Amino acid sequence: MKRTCIKNGKEMKNKEKRKVEVMGLFSSISAWNAARAEKHRVKMEERGFCPDCNGRGYSPFVPTEYHFSDIYDCPGCNGSGKYEDWANMNGTQM
């Protein structure tokens, strides 16, 4: 039995089928990543922590494995580690 894929009443060619399948894959990966980021944000909001630094107030910047530089304040919350400050900086309403 031959399987065919129909789009807008016309049979699709193999190249078009692959293109649709690949686009579906990318959109599902993108949707999964967006849901994961939203879940992390909601979890941090419940705890009152900044989602960028997980409430630590700093983000270590290490350009190479042999060079350990200073620790920098989190740019999302200005070093406070609080969700309220992060929300104010990013324009997110609580």
Rank of each mutant, 00 (worst) to 15 (best):
F26H: 07
L25N: 07
K17T: 00
H40W: 14
V20D: 05
E38T: 02
A35C: 06
M12H: 00
G24R: 07
E21Q: 08
G9Q: 05
A31N: 13
K17L: 15
A34P: 00
K13M: 07
M23E: 13
R18F: 08
K43M: 15
K15G: 05
I6R: 01
R41I: 07
K39V: 02
F26Q: 03
K39W: 03
K19T: 11
A31F: 04
F26C: 11
R3M: 12
I6E: 07
L25H: 06
E38G: 02
N33G: 05
R3E: 11
A34W: 03
N8P: 00
H40Q: 12
K39Q: 08
V42N: 11
V42Y: 08
E21I: 09
K10S: 11
A31L: 10
A31T: 06
S28C: 02
M12F: 00
E11Q: 12
I6M: 04
S28F: 03
I6V: 15
K43F: 12
K19M: 07
R18H: 02
R18Q: 05
G9A: 04
S28W: 00
V20C: 05
T4G: 09
K15E: 15
V20E: 13
N8S: 09
K10Y: 15
I29R: 12
K13R: 09
H40D: 11
S28P: 00
R18P: 00
R3G: 01
R18I: 11
G9L: 10
V42T: 09
E21N: 01
N33T: 06
H40L: 15
A35V: 05
K10N: 13
S30R: 15
C5H: 06
E16A: 07
K13T: 13
K10I: 12
A37G: 02
E21W: 01
V42Q: 14
S28N: 06
E16W: 01
S30I: 10
V42F: 12
V20Q: 11
T4P: 01
S27I: 09
N33Q: 14
E11D: 09
R18C: 06
R18D: 07
K13F: 03
R41W: 03
K39L: 08
K19H: 09
A35E: 14
K39M: 12
K19Q: 11
A35I: 04
N8I: 03
K13I: 10
K39G: 07
G9D: 10
A37E: 14
M12G: 00
W32S: 10
E16F: 00
I29M: 15
A35R: 12
S27K: 13
M44H: 10
G24L: 04
K15R: 11
E11G: 00
E11C: 02
E38W: 02
A34H: 07
A37Y: 02
L25Y: 05
R41H: 03
K7Y: 15
M44I: 01
G24K: 04
M23R: 10
F26K: 08
E21K: 06
R36M: 05
K10R: 13
S28L: 04
